[in-house]
Amino acid sequence: MTLPSVEQQPQSRAGPLLGTWKLQSFTDEDVATGQKADLFGAHPSGYLHYGPDGRMYAILLKEGRKAPDTLIPTDAERVDLYSGLIAYAGTYSIEGDLISHHIDASWNQLWTGTTQVRQIRIDGNSLYIKTLPARNPLTGKESSAVLVWIKVE
């Protein structure tokens, strides 16, 4: 049996970023107009987790999502549920105030295999994440979003 090289071994991470964070707000800003919008409502829900093994996941849900009438959603219900969801998982790396999410699985298959880079700042028990300007997968417009998360204790 051979052991993986040092480069292949997962590196343990530590620090205030580790753990689970609950979504408080998600505000998108259109780059061209400066117009801001809460695309997932004033009170979205969701969780973000960073593990010491370098793995992460994020799930964001639109405020007021309606449950389907039956166990198997209709096509219209399925579209409504999908349009109120962002979810992905993968690994993460940090360099300065930038965090890179290296996505292995995603609600939007176009994100799978990509790296999403965000600016981060921790202030007490709040985590502020700002996306870099890019085409928004919900609106198709060039935008940047600010997400505020609260540490789950």
Rank of each mutant, 00 (worst) to 15 (best):
A145V: 10
E142N: 11
V148M: 15
F40W: 01
A134G: 12
T115G: 05
L18C: 02
G51W: 02
Q9A: 14
L132V: 13
I129Q: 11
G64Q: 05
Q119T: 11
I94V: 15
T131N: 10
G124F: 01
Y50Q: 08
H43G: 03
L23P: 00
G84C: 00
Y57H: 14
P73M: 05
E153R: 07
G113I: 09
H102R: 04
A37L: 07
A58C: 14
G140Q: 11
P16Q: 11
L3D: 05
D80A: 15
V146A: 05
P10W: 04
D53F: 15
T139C: 13
K141F: 04
K66A: 07
P52D: 12
K36D: 08
Y50L: 12
P73H: 06
G46C: 13
D69A: 14
K66Q: 11
R121Q: 13
Q119C: 15
E153T: 09
T131I: 11
G124R: 05
S83P: 00
M1W: 06
K141M: 13
S126A: 15
D104L: 05
T20D: 05
D97M: 02
W111I: 04
G113T: 12
W107Y: 09
E95C: 12
L98P: 03
G84E: 00
K36L: 07
Y128I: 15
E63P: 04
M1P: 05
D123M: 04
E142D: 15
I59A: 01
T70L: 11
Y47W: 15
P44T: 10
V117E: 10
I72P: 08
T33E: 02
Y47G: 13
A145G: 03
G140W: 14
Q116N: 14
S5M: 01
D80G: 03
I150H: 11
Q8H: 13
H43R: 09
R78C: 14
H49K: 09
K62S: 08
N125C: 10
R118C: 06
S25Q: 07
P73D: 02
Y88V: 09
